[in-house]
Write a protein that binds this DNA or RNA. Structure first.
Lengths: 136, 136
DNA sequence: CTTGACCTTCCCATGATGGGAACCTCTATA
DNA sequence: TATAGAGGTTCCCATCATGGGAAGGTCAAG
């Protein structure tokens, strides 16, 4: 299996497979005589693991740790769970931040006529002028 | 007002003020004889506008557009509202993605003992092995 | 044997921010 | 007044994960 096949088998671009190899996230595969990378099913399995972890929002560094734990048959699940739990916390913090932005923006958009006139509460807010809600 | 004062007056780091100037988001201010940047209250006002827009998650590019609209006294509020609405949509999409990650991770973490034993449904999932919920 | 698809390495760009070096300037104090 | 230290200046580099593209080698089908 060459890099293109490994790519379509895992959803990881060839570019990224080479990158993951260059930073040491995955091991360098064997090469053909003509210097093409050759992937075994084991390596494809590893790439799928990486893809899934990245999809779940783990950083490459976290993914490296998880990969290490996965390959260590003796590891305690507590360690894995701690990483996952920490990651859940980080994601939730991010969600709260985004929700707060959305809330503010929705309020502003609601107060904005969105018409041909220049008056615009959104810009007024950005400029630091408090919005007058007029109790609507 | 020099760059340090402008920075603490707006919450934008001196580094970022120079960066915003270099990419043309804000105009280059006057300089003293000794080449120090000098900011007027107008320029500080603009920096506050930028800070607020960035805090609300607008990209620098969107901020540039909003800034242009803010300075154009004739603009229609519809244009501003469209940018804000589009941004709300993008944020909401991001939120949904993150929520989906959190949901999956919570399920996995819930199924994981988090103890000293090696069995770990989180890693099993990353490895592509379907989780057995055992109807808990 | 040619063509086109695919592989290789290498460099560059993104977006927004920070770090730091090397050097200049201002102000307060010994 | 000399000096210290705080803060200004420019310039380059790093981050994180990813894509683009050039230049050149390789493979398979027609």
């Amino acid at each position: 299996m060459n890099i293109g096949e490994a790519s379509s088998a895992t959803g990881v671009s060839a570019k990224m497979i080479r990158y993951y190899e260059s930073i040491g996230l995955i091991r360098a595969p064997l090469r053909t005589e003509s210097n093409y990378r050759v992937y075994s099913s084991d390596e494809v399995h590893t790439l799928r693991f990486v893809k899934r972890a990245r999809t779940l929002g783990f950083s490459v560094e976290e993914t490296a740790t998880l990969l290490g734990l996965w390959q260590d048959k003796e590891r305690a699940s507590a360690e894995v769970k701690a990483i996952a739990t920490g990651h859940i916390g980080a994601l939730e913090t991010k969600i709260v931040e985004l929700q707060s932005m959305v809330k503010t923006l929705k309020h502003l958009a609601h107060c904005c006529g969105g018409d041909e006139r220049p008056n615009c509460p959104i810009l007024d807010d950005l400029a630091g002028e408090a919005i007058k809600t007029k109790g609507h």
